[in-house]
Amino acid sequence: MATSVGSKFLDLDNGPDSTLLHRELNWLIQDSLGEGEPATLSCAASASSSGSTSSKKVVKLRTCLDDLYRLWKERIEDRRPFQYLVGCEHWRDLVLSVEEGVLIPRPETELIVDFVEDVLAENYGDGLKEGLWADLGTGSGALAIAIGRILGCNGRVIATDLSPVAVAVTEYNVKRYCLQDKVKVKQGSWFEPLEESEVELGGIVSNPPYIPSDNIAGLQAEVSKHEPILALDGGANGMKDLLHLCNGAASMLRPGGFFAFETNGEQQSQFLAGYMESELGGRLVDIKIESDLAGIPRFVKGFKAR
């Protein structure tokens, strides 16, 4: 089934090709192996290649083969994302639970945590490590959890999301990493759930919806048919929420506080950086555009003026 796809999806909407699907199939089988089964590559590899006789070992599966087949059919025929099939996404050193209604965290977004790590290493004296951070529009809680794990013992993170499903999934993920004392999850739009005592933020990170409304229909089927539009659609030019976050950062960050936002690419990054420099009265400084590993200028980061 995976082989028959060839490069059809790739040509159609930049979707997965056979090689990628084969690897996903290996992972699907790895993930369905029962407790105590060695999840070694060779084992999964030989199990997945139909007709292979190299491994005749009997393995215990947590799901019956019919269910696996049904799931895989959904992957190919409905283009249901692999991460929803197995219910998780491997992101940085985390394994995060995901389900329909929550955006699957992207590899690009991992870099935001690197930026935060760098800032914490350099600005230790500023106490950012022990400060209050916000991950706005947290989705599965990826950024909030990763940052929660690198803050000092007094550091805290508030994760907000408008979607009740996202809030529930984030709460579950936070519990899995035993960070209930460190990461607080609140339902609401962007800064709204923050209380008055929480307006002096040491840092703000966000991967808000940034895709222009017109582009939504043409997205890869995995995204457009299955992922929540709430987490993708950024209005006419895709900048509606990003601008709101910029203005919020200018007033909510404490002096010296750090921010990093993900954007749609070069155009948005440049516009945003220009806006911060010219429209916010110098309240945000040290503004830099950073590229993702594919070379696309993806992030805007900087500090609140002291």
């Binding site: 790739l10 930049n14 997965p16 990628l20 690897r23 996903e24 992972w27 994302p81 692999f82 991460q83 955006l103 699957i104 992207r106 590899p107 690009e108 991967n207 919806p209 940034y210 895709i211 582009n215 997205l219 890869q220 995995e222 995204v223 992922e227 987490a231 993708l232 993900e262 954007t263 749609n264 690419g265 993702d292 590993l293 594919a294 070379g295 696309i296 993806r298």
Partner: peptide, 18 residues
């Protein structure tokens, strides 16, 4: 350090396990 994936807009546009 780079990914050597073929083009595309990346980010929220793409769902990939690569």
């Amino acid at each position: 350090i780079d990914t050597y994936r073929s083009g595309g807009s990346g980010g929220q546009h793409a769902n990939t396990t690569d």
